[in-house]
Design a protein around this nucleic acid. Structure first.
Lengths: 255, 255
DNA sequence: CGATGGATTGAACTGGTTCAAGTGGAGTGG
DNA sequence: CCACTCCACTTGAACCAGTTCAATCCATCG
């Protein structure tokens, strides 16, 4: 199997590292991304992109570092250049729900109003491009296609949260894990096209559990279970080979 | 207790009734709505509203009728003038997840792309105002504030689906029902301000169950449970008096 | 009045959790 | 290079919150 595009270093959080100014507004030429990912570059011409890159700050975060926190004033929007990020919400006693995993090309912070409605944390080492929210939103007037694109992305996100509500409310543990693997397969194809059935799982079992509304133990048991059924092959905890993704999809949809 | 603004008739579905042309584009003056609900009228002047009303068709549906179905071509957007609507998604074996309850002033269909991503059904008798999606979306160019408002509504919706994901994935049955009552209290205040602690529950126990990811029996037991705890008073199945909404809110947040 | 269908209640059951004990792989330091 | 530590992951076994199945209740309607 090939080398993972993520880094799984178990190292402790370090201070975030400011990167040298560069040319990646809206992920125009971000590393590790195939052309298929959702990007904003194709709605702006190269001159406009130059002016946008002046508005951006690039930085880097190590795994486990917080990028922005729930209830914090929402001053920025973020675009992931590489790595993986999780968005989550918490109850006061620490119960956590992960509302989404994000990868190279993905945006977050756009749908917030005055405060962030989630906490964003780096799962792997990430490179991130940050913009001033107010300036970006104001620029929708001058660049209507940009605004349309952002609206479009928000709609797509809303539709997928509805799918996730069906998963959380009505699917069994087995169906949940199959759905997760199918989702990861699709995202993975977007980021790095190797064998499309070879899927990287950068997040921990506990992240997966909090995404699916399960416990770590149940997630682990279901991985074992799917392996015993001959549907997947495991290569460590962070790489899965989907031996029969058609059957997995059927299971995911409860068929 | 006062008279409910909904009708709970158990009558069988009838054909949808076309209403006479009227003056309610974007719920400008919809019946039963307080001024607090989300409306689009305040981003358009009266002349613009007149031209929008030409684009609209008003109609009425009896309880249990389908307004639009999942996977159907998304030709319209809808605005509820009165009554209650449920949006849901289904698995092939019939398991259902209700993604939202909508009331007077609410829109739906805006976040869809080519197909509806949900089924919308009337819970009570509803009056609905319908627009051609393409025309509305095109009009964002001439009425940018309208587009902004729609984007804003989509963001609000996205944020509340994230709260619902936390509920579905991580809350207990008791916490789920408390959250539901608090949500209904807030919506209810928007529609008809009487005693703010007197809440109408137009939907069935089975709708509530499918909204909270529970079974009818559990919902019913939790109603009884909250009653025994002295937190609510029940007046039939469709009206609840919140005796201690502070305590209910605390329970809803898992405190 | 009986029929119908939603709501409630009871009792048995179970999928997923909880608690507890291993296992294994990566990093550390001698 | 090996031994030790740490921590994420796995596995096992007991438990329980919520489901399932089965009455029963009760309001509405023809």
């Amino acid at each position: 199997m090939s080398i993972s595009p993520y880094s799984y270093s178990g190292s402790k959080p370090k201070a975030s590292i400011r990167l040298a100014a560069n040319s990646c507004p809206f992920n125009t030429a971000c590393e590790g991304c195939s052309s298929r990912h959702i990007s904003l570059c194709n709605v702006l011409d190269s001159n406009d992109l130059k002016s946008f890159s002046k508005l951006s700050t690039d930085f880097q975060k190590a795994a486990k570092q917080i990028i922005c926190a729930e209830d914090e004033k929402a001053e920025h929007i973020y675009n992931i250049r590489s790595g993986a990020v999780r968005l989550s919400k918490m109850l006061s006693d620490g119960r956590r729900q992960i509302t989404g995993f994000l990868f190279a090309g993905d945006f977050f912070g756009l749908s917030c109003k005055d405060k962030y409605s989630f906490t964003a944390e780096a799962i792997t080492e990430v490179k991130i491009c940050r913009f001033n929210r107010t300036k970006i939103i104001e620029s929708f007037q001058d660049y209507p296609r940009l605004g349309e694109r952002v609206f479009d992305m928000t709609r797509t996100e809303l539709n997928s949260t509805h799918d996730q509500m069906l998963l959380l409310g009505r699917k069994t543990a087995k169906e949940k894990l199959c759905s997760f693997l199918i989702i990861m397969k699709e995202k993975s194809g977007r980021i790095n096209v190797r064998d499309e059935n070879e899927v990287d799982i950068p997040m921990s079992r506990s992240d997966i559990a909090d995404y699916l509304g399960l416990t770590v133990e149940t997630v682990s048991r279901q991985f074992t279970n799917l392996h015993k059924l001959g549907l997947i092959e495991l290569d460590g905890a962070h790489r899965v080979f989907l031996k029969n993704s058609k059957a997995l999809l059927a299971l995911a949809e409860g068929e």
